[in-house]
């Protein structure tokens, strides 16, 4: 029986890992779900397997270790919260970019419908990365009144405010 459960844990882990290495969001989420299964059963198995010895005081003479069960119960609920969050993140990402690729170098390929931007010009992608902004901050403070002329990159383009796009 232990061998069966160990094999099940191994299989779910392998599927979870494989799916998480895919290139678009939905398979990654499925992979995450499988990995959660694997981790939960693994943690649960750390309390050792036992049949008909549920940890209810007074019902069986020798109940099984309840602590891994309590930990896994929390883990199941937390995984649900995580899945909800990440799936919504994926949805929002798709709605914004039209692509559900997880990689920066393959994503952002907006589909052909350029007229998505009919109401407002597409905000130019902000050239400043987080690290550049950090450098700017550390060099001279992040004051709104102090636009820093950076010879290499030029000033950060101001983001036009996207208008309410309800045609």
């Amino acid at each position: 029986m232990e061998l069966l459960v160990a094999a099940a844990i191994g299989l779910t882990t392998a599927t979870g890992l494989y799916m998480m290495l895919r290139g678009s969001t939905f398979p990654v989420i499925v992979g995450l779900t499988f990995l959660s299964y694997a981790v939960n059963v693994f943690l649960f198995a750390m309390g050792r397997l036992a049949a008909n010895r549920a940890p209810i005081v007074g019902t069986v003479p020798d109940p099984v270790d309840p602590l891994p069960q309590a930990l896994v119960l929390t883990a199941i609920v937390i995984s649900f919260g995580m899945t909800a969050l990440i799936v919504v993140l994926a949805l929002r990402g798709f709605l914004e970019t039209g692509s559900d690729a997880v990689d920066l170098d393959r994503g952002d390929a907006d589909d052909e419908d350029d007229d998505l931007d009919d109401a407002a010009p597409d905000p130019a992608p902000d050239a400043t990365t987080a690290s550049e902004r950090a450098i700017r901050f550390f060099r001279d403070g992040a004051g709104p009144d102090e636009p820093e002329a950076d010879p290499g990159r030029g000033p950060a383009p101001a983001r036009p405010v996207p208008s309410e796009g309800r045609p």
């Binding site: 232990e2 160990a6 191994g10 392998a14 599927t15 890992l17 693994f42 198995a45 750390m46």
Partner: peptide
């Protein structure tokens, strides 16, 4: 993924 699965399965079996 296969290596990872085998490793986790072995670990779980060893503990159980």
């Amino acid at each position: 993924a296969g290596l990872g699965g085998i490793a986790v399965a072995g670990l779980a079996y060893a503990v159980m």
